[in-house]
Amino acid sequence: MAAVSAGILLYRSVDSETEVLLVHPGGPFWAKKNEAAWSIPKGLVDPGEDHLDAAKRELFEETGVTLSSEPRLLGTYKQPGSKSVEVWVAKADGSEEPDPSVSSQFDIEWPPHSGKREFFPEVDRAEWFVLEEAALALHKGQVAMLDDLRRFLSE
């Protein structure tokens, strides 16, 4: 069975521009990558876990942000490989400033074949992007979310 992730596409309006909150993966593989490296806050849904609850949990675990508005389902997006991401959209009220220092950590052998284990944050940065910049920053499998957000905002 394919893995399912859930996430929140948090947006806000600043000076008549729509911005979205994106996170940058931590660890040495992503350290020097920026374009097409960012993601919405998301993660795997635990067995038996409600998908929206998983999305809210991941948003908090990766950014420290708790929602002030009730999210609406935006859609399900197929990612490269067999994973899909169920995405909810929510409007920020201005109090949602991300703090990636709360991010959980993972460990890997680093440098490779050294026998040493190093710990890295799951997320090393969280930033607001205007939609045009977000389209360049996001993984290619997530860019379609921005088009759906534009449609959602025009309803």
Rank of each mutant, 00 (worst) to 15 (best):
V4P: 01
S39V: 06
W30M: 07
D15C: 06
S154V: 13
Q79P: 11
V130C: 13
S68Q: 12
S114Y: 06
P112F: 13
E19N: 03
A92N: 03
R57D: 15
V85M: 09
K32E: 13
D99V: 12
S95C: 14
V89L: 02
S39N: 04
E127C: 14
Q79C: 13
E96H: 02
G141T: 04
S95Q: 10
D46M: 05
S95E: 11
I40C: 02
K42S: 06
I108C: 10
E70R: 04
A144N: 04
S101R: 10
K140R: 05
D148N: 01
D147V: 07
N34H: 04
E61R: 07
E132K: 03
R57E: 10
I8G: 00
G27K: 03
K32G: 10
P121Y: 13
L131H: 02
S114T: 08
E70S: 15
H139Y: 15
A90F: 00
D99N: 12
D124H: 12
H24F: 07
Q142K: 05
D148W: 05
A36I: 15
K32W: 09
D148Q: 06
V89K: 02
S16N: 10
V143R: 03
P41I: 11
D124V: 14
P41V: 06
S82A: 04
R12G: 00
A92M: 03
D148Y: 01
W128R: 15
V143W: 06
A54C: 12
S68A: 06
S95Y: 11
E122P: 01
F60I: 01
F152K: 09
L73P: 07
F129S: 06
S104G: 13
I108N: 10
R150A: 14
A36F: 09
